[in-house]
Nucleic acid binder design. Sequence first.
DNA 1: CTGGAATGATACCGAATCGTATTGACTGAA
DNA 2: TTCAGTCAATACGATTCGGTATCATTCCAG
Lengths: 217, 217
Amino acid sequence: MTDPAIDAPPETAQETGATDTAGRPVQLSTRGAARHEALIAAAAELFLAQGLDGVSVDGIVARAGGSKTNVYRQFGGKEGLFREVVQALSRDFLSPVAALDLAGVEPAAALGIIGRTLLRQLLDPRHLAFQRMVLGASGRFPDLMADWYAAGPRASQAMIGRVLEGHLADAARTGDAAVMFHDMIVTDPVNRAMMGQPLAWPVIEARIACAARTILA
Amino acid sequence: MTDPAIDAPPETAQETGATDTAGRPVQLSTRGAARHEALIAAAAELFLAQGLDGVSVDGIVARAGGSKTNVYRQFGGKEGLFREVVQALSRDFLSPVAALDLAGVEPAAALGIIGRTLLRQLLDPRHLAFQRMVLGASGRFPDLMADWYAAGPRASQAMIGRVLEGHLADAARTGDAAVMFHDMIVTDPVNRAMMGQPLAWPVIEARIACAARTILA
DNA sequence: CTGGAATGATACCGAATCGTATTGACTGAA
DNA sequence: TTCAGTCAATACGATTCGGTATCATTCCAG
């Protein structure tokens, strides 16, 4: 297995996050760096729509432009590309909730804001497809699911925990309470949406309010 | 691969639930009916282990015995077989929780019993694989996920609802409370197990107790 | 301008897939 | 015993895919 990019070092030294199969960095020209992004973007759309096994490398390349050379040089193969796609999407979906500033907001109101922001994000068809993709692949890539879980649900739960701090009877269980509130408002609406029977938004809002009352009692 | 117990028996015409692609019943001999079961059993194991796309019809037949003829005559193809497998497994996983008899048990204790029984069931590797399979395929088969959800989570929630009846401050929200209690105790442990980082059993028990106190407050 | 590396386009390979067709053995009833 | 229908085993065709190899083209530093 020869790798020309490594046998005879670079040209335009430009470092991206790309690594080959063995984890060694791959040098990319400006064109290559652009292809790197284009490949991830194209692969993301296709993987979201059809899942890992439903997409062919040729299909991705046809959409991204360039050639298969890039996929195998920059990502080591289909699997490497999939991994980078999942990690990139994990980062993207996190932002709106993490960006909330809840300083000085009443706990009940803060939980409502978090809940609505979170659910608007999670119920987006793109995110539903993403979750389907990650869960479906969790057998083959448990570490990828762990990465997503840390960047997504756990981050949201941490924010909920900060809101609950000092407002619970049993302060020692703040962490558990945060997880439980999160799962209480997220699980059922997401599952229903995932099987094509979404709840109406007012119903979801009522659930959030009900859950907030429950957890703060 | 021959199976002496199946190769020889008589050939009385016999009706099973099998239908062909157009929904018309297929006549099966005794041998055929045995193969029907064997195919579902073999396909179930393989689909659970490798997912829909990771399994080939030839692989299933190699494990079940017989030949591909049966798959296409009895199930119409790989997809039809997959559908029957999911429905059969949905029925199987339901039983232990539905079989509980909680007449005259205190609500708090009853919730504990349901929670422990439910989680012991859901955290079984076979069920984790099943859930992975159904969620991963929910894009292509949303109706299958709906079937599972009705036979699984919704049935459990209904049982929780019957326990809560008459013990909540806001009686009108008994249904919501049941769903929330269910998701509170189920979601996080299952997700953690699914990504290969299972919670210790005592932690889970504590969660159940905590959730029961919360929901009954 | 130029030489060597990175990239593009594509042919190619081997393996694997689904679904059908074929053939011969076996079954159960006439 | 005979005969029509079913099943097992396997061959087959058509297709697809992942990954490699090839060669022309483009890019960039010097």
